[in-house]
Structures are given as structure tokens and as C-alpha cells.
């Protein structure tokens, strides 16, 4: 049983991954819900973790693996309103996941059932990695950079030094380069405006497919900030933290992407 205060939050999470993966299992235990899945070309991996405190009520008295078709769950979530409360429940035997939406004023109740799938998914182990550079920036900024550079080239090189992070691309029409300085660069309406916050052990320069990076920016509505973790010989980790309605950290959505080989 999991009761979420705003159904729209779960919809945003599923919408941010449904175009990348077809099927996945939701692994539920008493602490929360975990998903891990790889895109069919094995170039990227998606994981999310929805901690217990994301939900108003949460109980799971035994470990469950729920096989989900992503397009189907997205269709059901689309039937609710974003500020509806949503109760997720499984039956016994576990072959369906039920969705009960209730409008904020309580005047409308709707219920949908999703047929679960028998999926044999391999559980991969994601190693604890010491990244050379960790870059935190506004989601909207990262999304704009990716979309702008994708109009010029297919891949983007991210170069991180102590002073700045640079995004650049080359295509048939020419080149593009965007550079963000380290640190808070000013204030706007009494709010700090960040270029990029950079934690660095060693400078890194790696290239990535813009097509995938643009997929990842679909998670931009989950959080203000995105965190890019980079290191030589390791996949890029693009992380969006997930917050509950009390603005407490309540999980994450992480994308991993293999760097491209520079030819």
C-alpha cells in the first residue's frame, strides 16, 4: 500500500523514463520502491528510488517485484489529475497493481487496474564510484544547453575544470560552445543564481550522445538542480533528486550513460 499526495509526481517520474525503457520491475520493500532498467541498446541505465517518506502512507510487509510495462503505467497515470491523491495497492496473488485516484475535494474517485507482467530481470550492481568531477547546475540550464547544442551536433563534449564547465559540439553547420563559471554568479530577486557548482578532484573531458542527454532532461520538472558525475573510464551519472510535498529529500532518479569514443 502506498499513498502519494500528488499523483502528478509519480506521473512526472514515469514520463521521464518511459521513452527510454519498455519494461521494468518495481522492487518494493519496507523502505521504498526501487527500479532499475537498461535501454535496449545497453548505452544507458536508469534507476530510481522512491523512499518511504515520499508517500503519505507506505507499507510493504514482504519484498515484491512488480513487472511493469512503462507505456501501460504511463497511460493509467494520465487518467488522474496531478493534484489527486493516489493509492497504489497490490492484491494476492500479485498479478495486478491497482491505482485509486481521489480528487483534492474528494468529489471524484477513479480506479484503474494494471495487469502485471512476469519479467525475468537481471539485477545489476552499481558500484560506488569516486568521480573526478561533480557538477551541480540548474535543470533548466542543462536542458537548454543540451537542446541548443543538439541543433548543431549529435554529441556534446563536457569539459570540467576547477574554474568552469564547458559544453561544446561540432556539426555540419558549424560549432557551438557554452561555458558556465564555477560558483554563485549573482542574485536575482534576492535568490542566488548559480552558474555551476563544481567539486573537482581532477579535470575531465568526455563526449556524450545528445540524443540520450535530451531524454534525461525530461526529468527536469522533478527538481531545480541536476547533478552530473563524471570520471575517466566510467559512465556519466546524471542525477535528479526527488522531494516530497514537505520539501524533504525522498529519493532520486539517476541516469547512467557511457561516454562516446572520440574518433
Amino acid at each position: 500500500n502506498a499513498l502519494i499526495k500528488q499523483a502528478g509526481l509519480l506521473k512526472k517520474i514515469i514520463d521521464a523514463i518511459k521513452d527510454l525503457i519498455d519494461e521494468a520491475t518495481l522492487d518494493c520493500d519496507n523502505d521504498g520502491i526501487y527500479l532499475q532498467a537498461m535501454d535496449s541498446s545497453h548505452v544507458s541505465l536508469v534507476t530510481f528510488y522512491l523512499k518511504k517518506n515520499l508517500f503519505e502512507k507506505y507499507s510493504c510487509n514482504r519484498n515484491l517485484s512488480l513487472g511493469i510495462n512503462m507505456t501501460s503505467i504511463a497511460k493509467i497515470l494520465k487518467c488522474g489529475m496531478s493534484d489527486d491523491t493516489l493509492l497504489l495497492e497490490t492484491n494476492n496473488p500479485i498479478d495486478i497493481l491497482s491505482f485509486k485516484f481521489e480528487s483534492r475535494r474528494g468529489h471524484k474517485l477513479s480506479q484503474f487496474q494494471l495487469r502485471l507482467m512476469n519479467l525475468e530481470m537481471e539485477r545489476l550492481s552499481i558500484p560506488d564510484t569516486e568521480y573526478s568531477c561533480i557538477i551541480e547546475m540548474m535543470c533548466s540550464e542543462f536542458s537548454k544547453v543540451c537542446h541548443d547544442l543538439a541543433t548543431i551536433g549529435d554529441s556534446m563534449t563536457i569539459t570540467c575544470t576547477k574554474k568552469n564547465v564547458t559544453f561544446d559540439t561540432t556539426g555540419d553547420l558549424g560549432t557551438g560552445i557554452v561555458s558556465l563559471k564555477q560558483g554563485v554568479v549573482g542574485s536575482e530577486n534576492d535568490e542566488n543564481v548559480y552558474a555551476a557548482s563544481i567539486k573537482i578532484v581532477k579535470p575531465v573531458s568526455l563526449s556524450f550522445s545528445l540524443r540520450y542527454l535530451i531524454y534525461f532532461t525530461k526529468a527536469s520538472s522533478l527538481s531545480n538542480k541536476v547533478i552530473l558525475h563524471m570520471g575517466e573510464e566510467v559512465p556519466l551519472m546524471v542525477e535528479y533528486k526527488i522531494f516530497n510535498t514537505y520539501e524533504e529529500e525522498a529519493g532520486y532518479l539517476r541516469y547512467f550513460l557511457a561516454p562516446k569514443v572520440n574518433e
Partner: peptide
């Protein structure tokens, strides 16, 4: 496109 890692292989070996 050529990539530095096959992620399935990468995460399988941990």
C-alpha cells in the same frame, strides 16, 4: 556510434 563501455557488461561485473 561507439561507446567507451557496454553498460550491461560494466554493471554486471560491478
Amino acid at each position: 556510434d561507439k561507446y567507451q563501455n557496454d553498460l550491461l557488461e560494466y554493471f554486471r561485473t560491478g
